[in-house]
């Protein structure tokens, strides 16, 4: 009975693997199709779409724009998120639960609602739609994830190390910079990669807060709406390989961190 169950369940697992991989594999294959029309069967193959994309200024600009937004918003998220985590972890004070609740709020708001709330607030703050507005919205949206990751790491820091540093004459600032911060570095690295990917992949905030310059997901969306061609597959494949590689590397990195 158990044996049957096991075989049945492993079939379900591999069917699920197929379900999550096959659409992506098909999408990658379609980028090599030697025809303007997306669709099966693929009769002959070509690399033209890729060479076309590599020389396409619009795509390259959008790519650079997305990377710049991802990096800058991640820097802000990490600074703010680490600060909030240091305040919240291991301290009890009046209003702590309320601050924690407000901290995780942006992660719980459904995408479209968060995007338009940011759009309205950007006007109040006087931020014009464009790169600055996108960076700001991504930074705020990603702070909760940084706080949660850094807090988890901080909770495992032995208190005795800080006390030892203080006994040896370090003031709280130096104790933070020399003991706490180095201990947090792996968590901060992990959170950074997570934020980079969230920002790079984000569509809804970039769409509603963007100006005329599209980010890569917004560009792909616009191209999809105006008609499909294997060119989009080539662009999407490049984005896919990049994000998947960073994701896998981050996964290995955090696993090594947890082993230490």
């Amino acid at each position: 009975m158990t044996r049957h169950n096991r075989i049945l369940l492993s079939c379900v697992y591999w069917a699920f693997v197929a379900y999550v991989f096959i659409p992506l594999i098909l999408m990658v294959m379609m980028g090599f199709k030697d025809s303007k029309f997306i669709g099966f069967p693929i009769k002959s193959w070509t690399l033209d779409w890729y060479t076309g994309v590599m020389g396409d200024a619009e795509t390259l600009t959008a790519f650079g724009y997305s990377v710049a937004i991802a990096v800058l918003s991640t820097v802000v998220s990490i600074l703010v998120g680490t600060w909030i985590a240091v305040l919240l972890e291991g301290r009890s004070f009046w209003g702590r639960a309320a601050i924690f609740g407000m901290t995780v709020l942006p992660a719980l708001i459904p995408g479209i609602i968060s995007a338009i709330a940011f759009r309205i607030y950007a006007r109040l703050l006087g931020i014009e739609p464009g790169m600055g507005a996108i960076i700001w919205s991504h930074a705020v949206h990603n702070v909760p994830f940084v706080v949660l990751v850094v807090m988890a790491r901080l909770s495992t820091l032995p208190k005795s190390q800080i006390e030892a540093a203080r006994d040896l004459g370090a003031d709280p600032l130096i104790a933070f910079l020399r003991i706490t911060f180095p201990y947090l570095v792996p968590a901060i690295m992990g959170a950074s990669i997570f934020c980079l990917l969230l920002s790079f992949d984000d569509f809804v905030r970039s769409f509603f807060l963007g100006g005329y310059e599209p980010t890569l997901p917004v560009l792909i969306f616009a191209k999809l709406k105006s008609g499909m061609s294997p060119e989009i597959n080539a662009i999407a494949t490049v984005a896919l390989i990049l994000t998947a590689l960073i994701g896998v590397w981050a996964e290995r990195f955090t696993r090594r961190m947890n082993k230490d």
């Binding site: 569509f203 997901p217 998947a244």
Partner: peptide
């Protein structure tokens, strides 16, 4: 596959 973005 879940590292890949929504649009893709």
């Amino acid at each position: 596959p879940f590292w890949v973005g929504e649009i893709v």
